[in-house]
Design a protein around this nucleic acid. Structure first.
Lengths: 139, 139
DNA sequence: TATTGTTATACTCTATAACTATA
DNA sequence: TATAGTTATAGAGTATAACAATA
């Protein structure tokens, strides 16, 4: 199918194809890839404000509001006012959110591995490294 | 920024970042990446019907209708009824479409090259090959 | 005045369902 | 009956602008 060799096409459709693997794999946990990304960044060490979380994911703060509304309604994250700056919300995973993060990550990784099978382990690693390099901040 | 290591995130944001390079580069020619992909597939040898073109790009036929409406309004493609099956449209590039394809492709490739600079030529090639492999049809 | 979160809104991209005409 | 193109429509995802609370 890859009759078009343009990088934009390749990236877009690889993403689309990947979701056909990871979507069903994560469905039992009630979240999708975007939500998993939010949970992942929130679990990464320090407690983050909504805006900080949005920045780390490269999305708009208004998009983060909507994403967190859903995750909070599912009981996976909690918002509380920042103790020293009442404008900010500190967002944290609930115990259920931590569990979901763990299980959905495992399911997503397994599906991702299946998607990448034909590359082999070394090239799969290389692909991710190259994409990470293209996204690294100092551009 | 690539604090999230998930493949879906990497693919999505690499695509987003790429567009920041190719978008402005192609703007002088009045088309975007999706439209260039359509022109490219239409220029590839045999004359295609709308549905065939849609299939080669992995998009829906109704999406192709809208895309072609725009390209036709810009004078870049022409539709004519298939001589042996009046249900079908044969879609072809106009002379202006061929010119735009040539120029916009060059501009897009240059921008793509700039985006990929830090990978080096060999890895840039490798990246595209790996993505192409992931998209190849026999899965 | 500037920042954080929020809301309202709008825009882009895409697909599904139903229609028309042809086969 | 089935297929190609079309239209109407709706949903997902995202951003911009304006507002309230707080700094």
């Amino acid at each position: 199918m890859a009759s078009v060799e343009r990088l934009g096409y390749l990236l877009k459709h690889a993403h689309k194809r990947l979701i056909e693997f990871t979507g069903p794999a994560m469905a039992p946990y009630g979240i999708d890839g975007r939500e998993l990304a939010v949970l992942t960044v929130l679990a990464g060490g320090e407690a983050l404000s909504q805006q900080q979380a949005a920045q780390r994911l490269g999305i708009d703060r208004t998009t983060m509001v909507a994403l967190l509304d859903v995750l909070e309604a599912k009981g996976l994250v909690g918002r509380r006012t920042h103790p020293e700056d009442r404008r900010k919300n500190v967002v944290e995973l609930t115990p259920s959110g931590q569990e979901t993060l763990r299980d959905a990550t495992a399911a997503s990784n397994a599906a991702e591995g299946e998607f990448l099978t034909r590359l082999g382990t070394a090239d799969a690693r290389r692909l991710k490294d190259m994409l990470g390099l293209l996204l690294s901040e100092d551009r």
